[in-house]
Design a protein around this nucleic acid. Structure first.
Length: 499
RNA sequence: CGGGACGUGGCGCAGUCCGGUAGCGCGCCUGAAUGGGGUUCAGGAGGUCGCGGGUUCGAAUCCCGCCGUCCCGACCA
């Protein structure tokens, strides 16, 4: 029974709730949704499972695109654009491919008011439309390697969806390359995996573990799938990028042949690889806190916000002038916003920009003008006392970029530390494994027998799955000779609960 | 597709049991003061109550049907 007093308490509580995010420690999922909303990254749409990427969220994606696109171009790739629709029969040419994607296909059956002779599949990935076309472009070994990338939207009909992490439609880039030898294709696959890792570390400050997927977890139609697995703040893994060596599977299915140096004909060796707007979700879950979004400076659409403070009209004039001048000074090298709105008081602005993840706020008030300084406030800082630092006017142009660099490095550092603190190596006892998973989880390195049924059982018991067979950089010095199922271990794997 | 909840101004909800002038908070607009961490006061705009049918003098409210969304499961970048 609820008394009147209780009802009032509840009411007051929920009003306060409006302004406070659900704490990360209390409900990670609710916290995540809150951060996305508060930062105005995305919103829901009238269509189930689809989302609207709002300007601030899209600006982050654009910064990611710029960095990645530069890396692809620097390694010889060219952008192109292939159609959204592919004939249903094309998808069916590669047996594993069609089987893998069948459950999540969206099909267009009508166009122009008439039923189509052959239904069109909305691309869930573009191999099936790209290879018939690239086949025409490739005649001789002189055309190889052919290195193509496209930025596009794709559709996969998912049952459960979450903003950025899983939606029916999402944005990504997909690279498609053709090579003369298996070795070349393999080199390309690993080159891209390395670029992804570098991007995630240097730009996102989200250090992934890289490795190869098990046979049954590969991309549908690939010989080998490599992945970047990043650890989120709830210790769950996020598959953040994949790179596939497709062997000659698609070349055979789509008859992509070239003439070799000695006049023979052979199928090309191909690769495909992609990262998506899911990275934005990963960024949120890697760094953000109970105040809202935290962005690494390299991917912050606004790196510095200037907030003026005044009382009298005279102060207002002088402070606005100083703010505008500072904006102009910093604007060349940095992405700066001067918040001169006079409809909000400074405190309200602080909350707004912190919620949106702006790395540095510069406050300018009458006291600062007097002392010929500005007050720089960091969005996050290892040392709480160092959060607010006065900077003399003359040092601003040097100090602010330096502070941004320091913050970028500190974010990577703390993400790395968190990953190491929550990684467990040499685990061979299943009870120990289970207690790690139930006690907060993490990345668990174990020996593995190599049987799919073994993973299925562990998944049923604990929800954890094999993420990857770790690359050299992440492999343990010593691996137990026993799998957690008790059987003999064939190789090392990394387990985690995953998104 | 199974289990659960819910559709009422932009957002979050109350009102539905027991039919009788459509309400509250946030946000928004106007004005004044305020301004170094979510400011206050005063005034104001905004809703065919998801859709269709039925019962009734009268339906947000009762009945029937449909549609949609969210949460939990099986599937997944």
């Amino acid at each position: 029974m609820m008394t009147l007093a209780c009802a009032k308490e509840t009411e007051r509580y929920s009003m306060a709730e409006d302004k406070v995010l659900t704490p990360r420690s209390e409900d990670f999922s609710a916290w995540y949704n809150g951060v996305v909303q508060r930062a105005e990254l995305a919103g829901y749409s009238p269509v189930r499972g689809c989302m609207v990427i709002r300007p601030h969220g899209y600006a982050i994606w654009e910064l990611m695109q710029q960095a990645l696109d530069g890396m692809f171009k620097a390694t010889g790739h060219q952008n192109a654009y292939f159609p959204l629709f592919l004939p249903q029969s094309f998808l069916q040419k590669e047996a594993e491919h069609v089987e893998g994607f069948a459950p999540e296909i969206a099909l267009v059956t009508h166009g122009g008011g008439k039923e189509l002779e052959e239904p069109l599949v909305i691309r869930p990935t573009s191999e099936a439309i790209i290879w018939p076309i690239m086949a025409d472009w490739i005649q001789s070994y002189r055309d190889l390697p052919m290195l193509i990338n496209q930025w596009a939207n794709i559709v996969r009909w998912e049952m459960r969806t979450r903003p950025f992490l899983r939606t029916l439609e999402f944005l990504w880039q997909e690279g498609h390359t053709a090579h003369a030898t298996w070795d070349d294709a393999q080199r390309e696959t690993l080159l891209i995996l390395g670029l992804y890792r570098q991007f995630m570390e240097e730009y996102m400050a989200m250090p992934p573990v890289t490795g190869i997927k098990t046979e049954w977890d590969k991309f549908a139609g690939a010989d080998r799938t490599y992945a970047c697995e990043a650890m989120m703040q709830d210790n769950w893994a996020l598959q953040a990028g994949t790179s596939h060596n497709l062997g000659q599977n698609f070349a055979r299915a789509f008859d992509v042949k070239y003439q070799t140096e000695d006049g023979e004909h052979d199928y090309v060796w191909s690769t495909s690889w992609g990262v998506s707007t899911r990275l934005v979700g990963g960024l949120v879950m890697t760094h953000s806190d109970d105040t809202g979004l935290v962005l690494p400076p390299k991917l912050a659409p606004i790196q510095v916000v200037i907030v003026p403070i005044w009382k009298s009209d005279d102060e207002k004039t002088r402070v606005l002038e100083a703010g505008a001048r500072l904006e102009k000074t910093l604007n060349g090298d940095l992405r700066v916003r001067f918040d001169d709105r006079d409809t909000l008081n400074p405190g309200a602005k602080y909350y707004e920009w912190e919620g949106k993840g702006v790395p540095i706020r510069i406050e300018i008030g009458p006291k600062d003008l007097e002392k010929k300084q500005v007050m720089a406030v960091l969005r996050v800082s290892e040392d709480p006392k160092a959060r607010k630092t006065p900077i003399p006017d003359g040092e601003v142009t040097a100090r602010i970029p330096a502070l941004l660099d320091e913050m970028q490095a500190a974010l990577l550092e703390s993400a790395l530390r968190r990953r190491e603190e929550n990684s467990y190596r040499g685990v061979s006892d299943y009870d120990e494994f289970k207690s790690i998973i139930s006690g907060g989880g993490g990345f668990i390195h174990t020996g593995y027998c190599g049987a799919e049924e073994c993973e299925t059982k562990v998944k049923d018991d604990t929800k954890a799955t094999v993420r990857v067979i770790p690359d050299e950089d992440f492999a343990s010095d010593e691996v137990p000779d026993k799998c957690i199922c008790g059987g003999p271990a064939e190789y090392e794997v990394v387990w985690a609960r995953a998104y």
